[in-house]
Amino acid sequence: MTVIIDYDAGNICSVRNALSRLGCEYVLSADPATIEAADRILLPGVGNAAEAMRSLEAKGLVPVIRGLRKPVLGICVGMQLLCRHCEEGDVDGIGIFDCDVRRFPASADAKVPHMGWNAIGNLDGKLFKGLSGGTYMYFVHSYFAGLCSDTAATCRHGNTLFSASLRYENFYGTQFHPEKSGDAGALVLKNFLGR
């Protein structure tokens, strides 16, 4: 069973719709027992990282997520929450990935938010099976996870090279939105779901 963690983290419609398109049945839940019993867990997130983190804490889900041993995929802010610290709202994350999340420096040739299709490279791991470097994915974000030993794909915005994807043991993260990235994004979701 696939569970989408339901914690008031903005609009998660698009993740639900993507799973429906792939014919994947899922449950929306904030119940620790349901999440712990899942085969696969998605942690979506849109909006403010600090608010999202507070919402996870209020539901008592931080230790639950930290203890998961089944595949977990954090998307966008969901991935950022799995990092050590987020500059947005100066909040500590769940601490799975070994990096911090910072704001993009503003510059004339790199608008913030980083919004639109950008190419990813240095692809590593099963999430990217069947894809090659240079594949375009859809991004919408103002904060980025730096490069670290958990980086599983990179992307460049202006002069900043950042983690487009992170991976540590059973935890995966994508800064881009696979659910909005056409066929290439659908393949990433399929790889995660093992379909």
Binding site: S14, N17, A18, R21, E179, K180, S181, G182, D183, G185
Partner: peptide, 8 residues
């Protein structure tokens, strides 16, 4: 539309 398409 949201259910049918996979681009923004």
């Amino acid at each position: 539309i949201a259910l049918g398409i996979d681009i923004p």
